[in-house]
Design a protein around this nucleic acid. Structure first.
Lengths: 353, 353
DNA sequence: TTGAAAGCGCTAACAC
DNA sequence: GTGTTAGCGCTTTCAA
C-alpha cells in the first residue's frame, strides 16, 4: 500500500509522474467526469460558469485526454498512415521531404498526426497496410505511388480501407479520392518559356514509356511544339531516371538533331544533360538551355541555377487531408479528383540567350 | 435494428467490417481469452498443441490485437515522436529525408512506429511535445536539433520525458543518451585527402562561431593543417549557410590568400564556392579543389560530382533506437553517448589535379 | 444542463 | 498450462 505516496499538493505542476485523468479534473472542478468530457467534446452543452470552472481545472492540472482510452472508445486513432517508399541508390528523393513536411502540417490543422511506416516485404502489396488497419492503428492512409499502377492501391480499395492517393488512379473506374499534379501542364509551361526565348529545336529527355507519369509530362512537351508548329520528330529520348541516362540521351540527340534546348522529365536527368554540355564545352543557358522537373535542391544550388518545374506539394497535402476528412466523415465522396498546376521556376539554365 | 445484418459465415475473410477481437479467436480456438493473449505475448507459457490451435485461429480470422486497447492496458503506445524542423527557404534539408527513413526502418525492427509532428509555436519550447506526452500518444522522442543549444531538450529533460538526442548535449552534465556524428573527424579526413593531393593552401568556408556544429567541423580542418605544418591564418571565412555566403567567402579568400582548395561546412556553401569558381573561369577539381559536407543530392548530381562528407545516418538511427530501447526498459542508461565517424565520398571536385 | 451506468478490447494478477 | 476477475480512461446511452 505504499505506492500511493502522493505529493503534498495534488494540483501542482508535477514532473511527469502519473498524468491526471478525467476523474482528477472532475474532482477539482466539483463536477462529474461526464461533464468534463462534455467540456472537451461538446462545450456548447455546458453552462458558461461550469465550463469556465472545468477549463481552469484542466489548465491547473495540465490535463490532456488519454489517447489510448479515447481511441478505444471512439474506434479512431486520428492517425494518418504514410508509407515511405524505398530510398533508391542512397539518394534522397527530392520531393519526399517537402511532401512529408507539408502533409504533417496539413494534418495537424485537421487534428491528425502522421504515422510513418515502410513495407517489410516489397513483394506483398498488403505489406504494412493490413496490420495497421486491422489493429486500428491508423484511420486512413495516404498512398503516394499509385501512378505507376502499383498493386497496393488496388489492394487497399478491395479491402475497403479508407485512403486517398497522391497520383491519378491507375484505372478509369477507381473509386478513391485522389490529388495529383498536372505534370503535362508544367512541362508545357516550360516548353512555352523556351519557345518565347526563340528556341525552335527543343528536345525531350524522359523516361521509358511504361511510366504514366513520364508520358504525362512528355505530352506537355509534344503538345506545345505541335501547337507552335515546331518539330517533334527525332527530338525525344527515353531512359532510366539517372544522370548517366540523361548524359547519353543528350549526347545522342545533340549529334542527331542539334537541339538548342532540353526539357527533362526530372532534375536528375537534367543533371546528366548538364554534365554532357560541360564535357562538350557548351555553356548551360548560354549555348544550350536546360529545364528540369521537381525544383530539387540541386536545381536551386547549381551554379547559375537550373530552371525547373516545381510541384505545389503544400497544396497537394492540404487537398489530400481535406478529402480524407470528408471520406472519414461520411461515406460519400468517392470518385473525387483534384488536379493542381505546377509552377515554372526560371533560373540561369534557360536565361542567358 | 437493421444494422446488424451479419454475413453468413463469421469466419470468412470479410472485407473490413468489424475486426475480430481476442474473444473471437478464443471462441474459435476453444480456449479462454487469456490464453490467446498469452499466445501473443508469452508463447512459452503455452503447450505446443494449444499454441498451434490458437495460432491457426488467429490466422484464420486475420486477427491483429487492437492497438488502442493494448495501449490503454500497457500504458505504452510503441510510438516514437519525431518533430520535423521547419523547412527553411522552401529548400529541402538534405539530411532530413535520409534520416527519417533510417529512423523508420530502425524503429520498425524494434517494434516501434514513428509519429511525426511539428511545433505549432516555435517560441514555445514545449510546443507539441507536452501535449503528446501528457496524452500518452508517444512513448519517447527523438530530438534532432540539440546541437544549437535549443531549449527543447532542456525542457524535455526537466519534465522527465524519455528522449534521445541526435546531437551532442548542449551542456556537459546532460543526463540523456545521445548519438552524434564526429563532424571534426569528417572534415579532418577531407583535409588530409587534400593534403595528399599536394594542396598546401587549404581554406575553410564555414558558419558563424555561435554554431557548435560549425566549430566542431572547423576544428577538424584547423587541427589537420597544424599537424601537417600548413598555414591556417587568414584562410578561414564564416557566414550564413547560403550559397551567397559561400560565394562571397570564396571571393574574398581567393583575393587575399590564394588558396588552391576549399573545405566547406556544408554542400550549400560549397555550391556558392563552385559558383564563384565558374564566374572566375576556374575549373572545380582542375584548378581549385572543393569539398562539401552532407553528401546531398546536389553533391551527387553536380556535373563531375562534389566531394563531400557523408554522415552515417542509418547507423545513427540504429543507435538512437537501441538507446531508446534501453531507456524505456530500465531507468538506467542515462549519460550514454555515441560518436560515429562520417565517411568521405571522393568525386570530381577534388580529383583532376 | 448535469450525473450514473455500461462497456470499448486488452493484459496483469491470481486461482485452478 | 489454463481460466477467472478486474480495471486501464474514456465516451455514449439514458435518466434526473
Amino acid at each position: 500500500m505504499r505506492e500511493a505516496e502522493q505529493p503534498h499538493g495534488a494540483a501542482e505542476p508535477t514532473t511527469a509522474s502519473v498524468p491526471p485523468t478525467l476523474a482528477d479534473v472532475a474532482a477539482l472542478a466539483g463536477v462529474s467526469r461526464q461533464t468534463v468530457s462534455n467540456a472537451l467534446n461538446n462545450p456548447a452543452l455546458l453552462r458558461a460558469d461550469t465550463l469556465e470552472r472545468v477549463r481552469s481545472a484542466i489548465a491547473e492540472l495540465g490535463y490532456s485526454p488519454n489517447r489510448a482510452a479515447r481511441n478505444l472508445r471512439t474506434r479512431a486513432s486520428r492517425l494518418i498512415g504514410l508509407r515511405l517508399t524505398a530510398v533508391v541508390d542512397e539518394t534522397a528523393n527530392p520531393t519526399t521531404d517537402r511532401f512529408v513536411h507539408s502533409l504533417v502540417q496539413a494534418s495537424r490543422e485537421a487534428g491528425y498526426h502522421v504515422l510513418l511506416f515502410d513495407g517489410d516485404d516489397p513483394d506483398d502489396p498488403a505489406s504494412g497496410y493490413d496490420a495497421l488497419v486491422r489493429s486500428t492503428a491508423v484511420d486512413a492512409f495516404v498512398v503516394t505511388d499509385t501512378f505507376r499502377g502499383n498493386p497496393q492501391a488496388a489492394h487497399l480499395e478491395a479491402s475497403g480501407v479508407p485512403f486517398v492517393a497522391f497520383g491519378r488512379p491507375w484505372k478509369p473506374a477507381a473509386l478513391h479520392p485522389w490529388v495529383d499534379v498536372d505534370g503535362g501542364a508544367g512541362v508545357a509551361a516550360a516548353t512555352r518559356h523556351l519557345v518565347e526565348r526563340r528556341h525552335t529545336r527543343i528536345a525531350w529527355v524522359g523516361w521509358r514509356a511504361q511510366s504514366h507519369l513520364g508520358e504525362d509530362r512528355r505530352d506537355g512537351w509534344a503538345r506545345t511544339l505541335r501547337e507552335r508548329g515546331l518539330p517533334v520528330e527525332g527530338l525525344a529520348a527515353r531512359g532510366d531516371d539517372t544522370p548517366a541516362s540523361g548524359y547519353a540521351a543528350a549526347s545522342a540527340l545533340l549529334d542527331s538533331a542539334a537541339p538548342t534546348a532540353f526539357v527533362c522529365a526530372s532534375d536528375t536527368l537534367a543533371a546528366g544533360v548538364l554534365d554532357l554540355l560541360r564535357d562538350r564545352g557548351l555553356g548551360a543557358g548560354r549555348d544550350v538551355a536546360v529545364v528540369g522537373f521537381d525544383d530539387s535542391p540541386f536545381a536551386q544550388l547549381l551554379p547559375g541555377g537550373l530552371t525547373s518545374v516545381r510541384q505545389p506539394l503544400e497544396d497537394v497535402a492540404v487537398h489530400l487531408v481535406a478529402q480524407l476528412g470528408e471520406l472519414l466523415a461520411r461515406r460519400a465522396p468517392y470518385g473525387t479528383g483534384t488536379l493542381l498546376e505546377p509552377r515554372l521556376v526560371v533560373r540561369g539554365s534557360t536565361l542567358t540567350r
